[in-house]
């Protein structure tokens, strides 16, 4: 019993420490973000590694999610004779929830883990210390560009995910099942609101981009500099960012759509 309480206390104190460190780290990073934009080629390189290299998984997953939505949506709607609403269902599900959330989860496991591994290994092999010794701040030179690369990639990836998903839903609904093409698009356009759905989706993915990127760079920078420490940090990145994305999604959804 005492042991249990002690473990609980230990976990709580540890958690608070971590959050405190992460916050200080975020401010230090923002303070040292100048070079990420002044020397934009640093960030471009990270846009390549976080964004371009995540494209394949985003496009493929988006297509499949859209096609499944097409099938399931049609199956459910035709019971009520409302197949015409298929376009709305597909587009709203993707824009509001699935696009931002699934893209962020994929991004965390594809790009976030890679960023953690890279920074963690640089730390373990003293590359960060070496840089510091050359009077080059590793937060400005290594960490901040990776953070901004992630933050900028995320909304674009989510938009690509949603678009590919809508096309996937259209392919199943219109091409394969034979819902009327005009009805599909016009119903969609009628029920999707630009501000309410498109802009809110982009806002969500932007917030997720911050969360996932911050967790990824922080775990890398904060890891124990050993092979085991790096692998533990990678696991933490994936687990923490997934939980964070889902929790933030709940909070954002309740602010954006409910109680208005």
């Amino acid at each position: 019993m005492i042991q249990l309480l002690r473990t609980l206390g230990h976990l709580t104190v540890d958690g608070v420490w971590q959050v405190g460190f992460a916050t200080r780290f975020l401010f230090a990073m923002l303070r040292h973000s100048g070079p990420s934009f002044a020397r934009f080629s640093l960030t471009i390189r990270e846009l390549y590694f976080s964004g371009v290299l995540s494209l394949v998984i985003i496009v493929v997953s988006g297509a499949f999610v859209g096609m499944v939505l097409g099938l399931q949506g049609y199956d459910t709607l035709q019971r009520f004779g409302s197949e015409s609403a298929l376009g709305s269902i597909v587009a709203l599900s993707l824009l509001r929830e699935l696009g931002p959330v699934v893209a962020a989860l994929l991004f965390a496991s594809r790009a976030g883990s890679a960023v953690t591994a890279e920074i963690g290994l640089m730390k373990a092999t003293e590359q960060l210390t070496a840089m510091d010794m050359m009077a080059v701040n590793p937060i400005a030179r290594v960490v901040a560009p990776r953070f901004w690369g992630g933050v900028l990639s995320m909304p674009l990836l989510a938009a690509i995910f949603s678009t590919v998903g809508v096309i996937g839903g259209w392919f199943i609904g219109v091409v394969v099942i034979g819902v009327d093409n005009g009805t599909f698009w016009s119903q969609m356009a009628n029920s999707v609101d630009f501000r309410e759905d498109v802009v809110n989706g982009v806002v969500k993915s932007f917030v997720f981009g911050w969360a996932v990127s911050l967790i990824a760079v922080f775990q890398g920078y904060d890891c124990t500099p050993t092979a085991e420490g790096v692998s533990r940090a990678i696991t933490k990145t994936v687990v923490y960012s997934s939980l964070m994305v889902l929790a933030l999604d709940f909070i954002l959804t309740s602010f954006m759509y409910i109680g208005k």
Binding site: L121, M122, T125, E126, Q127, T129, A130, M131
Partner: peptide
């Protein structure tokens, strides 16, 4: 550095 610490 003892282990070189080259940027990989």
């Amino acid at each position: 550095f003892q282990f070189g610490a080259l940027f990989t």
